[in-house]
Amino acid sequence: MKKVIIILGLLVATSYLSAQTSVWKVNWDMNAPLGQTTDFIGKFSMRGVSVEGSWFLNDNIALGGIFAWGLFYEKTGMITEHAPGYDITGHQWRYHNFTPLLFTGEYYFGTAGNIRPYAGLGAGVSFNETAKYIGLHELYSKEWMFTLAPEAGVMIPIANNVNAHVKAKYLHGFGKDADLQTFAISVGLAFTSYKY
């Protein structure tokens, strides 16, 4: 892992120094829970942001990283949970925070200064935090998860070095008991370097 980080760092630094071509994206993320994540909260969320930066190795391939934060929230109303030997009834407030921190690799189609669709893959870790409040009581858990996130998006130039950015991303964190699975639509701005 350490070697991979060093190699990636060198690649990024080399490309940055030689060509000074980079892109920074700031996004508003709208997340939908999928799969096992819906067992806890099934509600779509508008609460999410992400910041990502990538450096171009050549005209089409870029390496970088992304930091994101998302929150799912749901108030369940009065429900009864059944378990062997006991049953509990009450209103529940459920929170699910997730914070992916991923290395990314992207392939950009087209040429600089034009509309550029791209596809990529992120790999890294996610900090996953769930809290369930029943009445005056809280059940809390947290976990770091290995995470993979394929994505596809497009950058559309709107001003000098500024682009509108839209992307779709599937994120899968591999947990001990339950996986983190989300589908996100991100909208934001992408800021490109001078020579891009």
Partner: peptide, 20 residues
Amino acid sequence: GCYPNNDEPIEEYDIVATFY
């Protein structure tokens, strides 16, 4: 607006638990 407000009616904090 990241965390929703929990200013709820007081009876919504009631819980009923049964053990057997």
